[in-house]
Nucleic acid binder design. Sequence first.
RNA 1: GCGCUUGUAGCUCAGCAGGUAGAGCAAUCCCCUUUUAAGGGAUAGGUCACGCGUUCGAAUCGCGUCAAGCGCACCA
Length: 512
Amino acid sequence: MGQELLHESDSSIRQQRIQKLADLADKGINPYPYYYNKDAKASELQEKYKDLAAGEETEDTYSVAGRVMVVRNSGMFIDLVDDSGKIQIFSHKENLNPEQIALLKLIDLGDIVGFKGTIRRTPRGELTIKAKDLTLLSKSLRPLPNKHLSEEKIKEIEAKIGKVYKLTDMETKYRQRYIDLIANEEVRDTFRKRSLIIQKIREYLISKGFMEVETPMLHPQAGGANARPFITHHNALDMDMYMRIAPELYLKRLMVGGVSEKIFEINRSFRNEGIDTRHNPEFTMMELYQAYVDYNDMMTLTENLVSTIAQEVLGTMKITYGDKTIDLTPPWDRKTMIGAIQEKTGIDFSNVFTCEDAKVKAQSIGVNAEDCDNWGQVLDHVFEEKVEPGLIQPVHIYDYPRDISPLAKVHRSNDRLTERFETRINGWEVANAFSELTDPIDQRARFEAQALAKANGDEEAMSIDEDFICALEHGMPPTGGLGIGIDRIIMLLTNSPSIRDVIAFPTMRHKD
RNA sequence: GCGCUUGUAGCUCAGCAGGUAGAGCAAUCCCCUUUUAAGGGAUAGGUCACGCGUUCGAAUCGCGUCAAGCGCACCA
């Protein structure tokens, strides 16, 4: 039955295990059964019997199940790992019949097995299930990454038994994340935290009266951000479509509709751009919109949201990232973009009025802004070069140039600026928010400026979205809007150096 | 896209003034065991990423390709 599975190219370990499938079939055992009546998790038992003294036995019977991660003494002792933790299994011939002993011999590292037995604590102090019965639940045909024994690693093993199995090859970790998860406890922790962080964000927003909505991922035209889109094609409609680069314009349509005065969406966006430690082509954004508030309220909301999540997930607002300590305790610093630049460079761009003059000023401090098309772009460029790298602690940089903010409302007291801010943590943009532009006439003018830039070769510029303008023409309430890069927040809260460490299956080049 | 680094057994790595591969763990068999990095003995396992070249001879040198990591560029 396993015959056709045997190929010359197979590794010997895999061949041996496929042979075991045949041995199991001979015994009438299905290596891939349908269910198991698991009634306890490893960590529950560890907690429940934490006061059981070494050497003591009970008659309490449980069924546990998980992956065989360590085998000692020819199978007499097994470390069984489930999603909660580890428990030791003791299998002795006194307690098992010959058929069960025979099955035990066919169990390999990596198999999923269920054990039923009584609770005891060994003289050495390890909580253990004394097995009375065992059930193979899934045969593993491929070997696991194994313990390795450099001096350094031995110390790790001594420090924490859960790290005995290790996989460090980056390519395998990313392409075959399941192996990474099996082998590395800290990776399991990271993805559990990812889930918890997103759950807590939802809970927080819902508790504040926000309604979760969903908007299209397939757009007839790309919009809502300056980015290059992925293009795809719908066959039945015979039309090109664009994977969304931001949900913004659809969420604002919902604000026009008034389904709720507070809405949010947590979902993927796609940008056809480079890949590095902070960018993955598909990434998770949270965007929210709240009627009758402005960008000042969004600043407060941002810091309350992020600090609350940190507190709930990590138990502290002072986080460690690499060798840095970042204090997320609100309130966060707030600096105007012009002020932050002046503070750092001494140049007051509020007194610079033309693009050409701005370029001269930029040049005077060693920033080449020749490619910039307007005053705002120069300002942004200078900011990125001179200010951003030093912004480790959380800070809201506000009042962005109108030139580079086509969806934000003009500043109420300076028409060269908009009521827009970006929040920086560890030098990264983690939030982008504005008093949303609700004036359809102005929005059209902004789109037209974008369309002109696009015509002049700016591949990331927006085009005119007539349908969106039509929506605005029906009237949208004054609204504060906020976008947060969820992956980057997760990186910060899990101390992950690369965005790929917090995305289970990051985008990789095709390989065959 | 450019630069630097990397790609050797299932995993982690060694070998690289060129002589055709090694270790630990994992695996197989045996012994012994209430162990915890269990122990002891024996065995097996590799087109040294791929291709071309230099050479009597290449995992080791050269060129190219592929993949990965990091940095820069691009990009929020």
